[in-house]
Design a protein around this nucleic acid. Structure first.
Lengths: 332, 332
DNA sequence: CTGAAAGCGCTTACAG
DNA sequence: CTGAAAGCGCTTACAG
């Protein structure tokens, strides 16, 4: 059977209080300390976390709500969160909503009823219902990937990153460009990245840019690009995610176009697969794992009632590979 | 503040015992049932799971140990486990070991000290130390992906699947084949798949087959294939995983070979990306999500002390795409 | 530094 | 059907 604190007390000949004090780093004499240590080693005792949480009125669970488990972004963010949380002696509880936004709400309440100390939400959209739930459960919440003025958040620098990739393709001489984005309901990916890109475009002259919208799925993107290519032949396709870029790549290839000679393509995310495909995809790398670590640090601070900036920014970096051609005119 | 069962008792004018009985489906009169329901609705009361677990001496956590979070196999298996566990009213606790096998052992003990009801281990290797840990913690364990005579397991039918892909390439006329496997320490992937493949080869004549070993990483595989191609030019490369196949594909392409005209390639796993790359990869699809669901069902049965077969097999299917050429001689 | 006692929020025989 | 009481394994003032 499982040993309890009473067993340890009996074996080491002290009271339960003293054992508890030892466990929690209170003041215990060297001699009793040794006796207790011995008893613990001998029995393999570990405190019952349920009893601890019940009594101490606090738990060491951090709930993380993810829209999906099978995405590079989600899994790498989770890896970072998990790693950092372990270091801080918290336990990660992952809840997958399978991209159903109603389940996010349910999950917020159910995590609360499980008495988690805090919640990290890998967010896609923040609705009024979300805000209401945050309010009601009354536990620290941290948004990752999206921001909202009323909630603490950690976001990728989508605006600047969008600007950077815009500048990049412009510098490579592209002027006839298709921008393949996603729904504006997703503020980070659908609005901010495009906004940054537009700013870059606005600083350049003689551009012909058309904007298209597709889903996050690569097959949907493939089809969208196939259609697009009927009526518009850009020299460069800038995609709001790597998955979209993968779809674009395949659509172009199936059309017999050579990348980057006939058309250049860029992605956004920096997934591993962008390096292994042929040609390698030029993309904006986002640091998901690092973002996850920062998120874990922030939520724990929030739990401990330490101060945290309302908004934390994660970095990005442009990775140059083979999918973008330089078409700078000869006269340069 | 959080309401307790005492609050509900007071509001509805009955005893705590009765409320508890109502909560646990005991016999309660219609009238009191209604009063209690009202009080619960009014207060938004949810039972404290720590108190429940402490008293009832059982928990609804199932710990799942995964070697990594960022793999198609792991995440899809996890999705299946999570989905099924929710349905069975259990809560999934994911623990990532980051491919460090010592951490698997630590995690087994730490999950046990967290009083999980059962453990699912997405296994790579089963060592003596594992068996010892299973023994010591004395809670139900289910292996997924690997098997061992002493432990319950759920595995993909690697042997048959290996045989099937061997038969397949043979039927396509290939006789000069490279098999790209992994370490035999991984019994399922390193031994069984190869064994099945060899059986198919043994049934055919005039084959020249060479066996190579590489890691699970696509970049390592790419390099391995690049080297291999110096000394051996097969008409077909059979890979033990999709990631290896991706590496092989890139190596061949960088060498200027056209797939499948110059060399055919097959994978193993059925990752989404194998469909979007160009050419599409012919592969053996494994049903990770379904396997995860079965695993969840089995571990819960084990927790409830119902009987479960020592070994459960998950299915597979060959997906034909463009990466394998038919080179059947003209005389057919 | 140490121990006795109360209490965290539940569940479960037991008696009625 | 219902309630009083004990107890799950801890922690935490309080007194010494």
């Amino acid at each position: 059977m499982n040993k309890t604190i009473a067993d340890i007390a009996k074996i080491s000949g002290v009271s339960k209080s003293t054992v508890s004090r030892y466990l929690n780093g209170g003041s215990v004499s060297e001699a009793t300390k040794r006796k207790i240590e011995l008893a613990i080693k001998e029995t393999g005792y570990t405190p019952n976390p349920f009893a601890q949480s019940l009594k101490a009125k606090k738990t060491y669970f951090i709930g993380t709500i993810v829209p999906r488990l099978d995405s590079y972004a989600a899994s790498h963010t989770l890896i970072g969160i998990d790693e950092q949380l372990k270091e801080l002696n918290f336990q990660l509880l992952i809840s997958n909503t399978n991209q159903q936004i109603e389940r996010e709400i349910e999950t917020i309440y159910s995590l609360a009823s499980q008495k988690v100390a805090g919640i990290i939400l890998l967010a896609t959209q923040i609705t009024q219902v979300h805000l209401e739930a945050f309010e009601k459960v009354n536990i620290p919440i941290l948004l990752v990937g999206q921001e909202h003025p009323d909630v603490h958040s950690l976001i990728h620098n989508d605006l600047e990153a969008g600007y950077a990739i815009g500048k990049y393709v412009l510098e490579k001489g592209h002027r006839k460009i298709a921008y393949l984005g996603v729904t504006e309901k997703d503020v980070a990916v659908g609005v901010r990245r495009k906004e940054g890109f537009k700013r870059a475009i606005a600083e350049s002259e003689g551009c012909e840019v058309r904007y298209f919208e597709t889903g996050f799925n690569m097959f949907a993107a493939q089809q969208r690009v196939t259609e697009m290519l009927e009526g518009f032949q850009p020299t460069c396709i800038v995609c709001a995610t790597d998955n979209i870029a993968l779809g674009a790549l395949r659509a172009a290839q199936l059309k017999g176009l050579s990348i980057p000679k006939d058309v250049s393509i860029t992605g956004f995310g920096g997934y591993d697969v962008t390096e292994i495909i042929h040609p390698g995809l030029t993309t904006v790398k986002l640091f998901f794992k690092e973002a996850g670590k920062m998120a874990a640090q922030n939520i724990v601070k929030l739990v401990n009632e330490e101060s945290v900036p309302k908004r934390t920014l994660s970095k990005y970096e442009i990775i140059e590979r083979e999918s973008v051609d330089s078409i700078i005119p000869n006269d340069l």
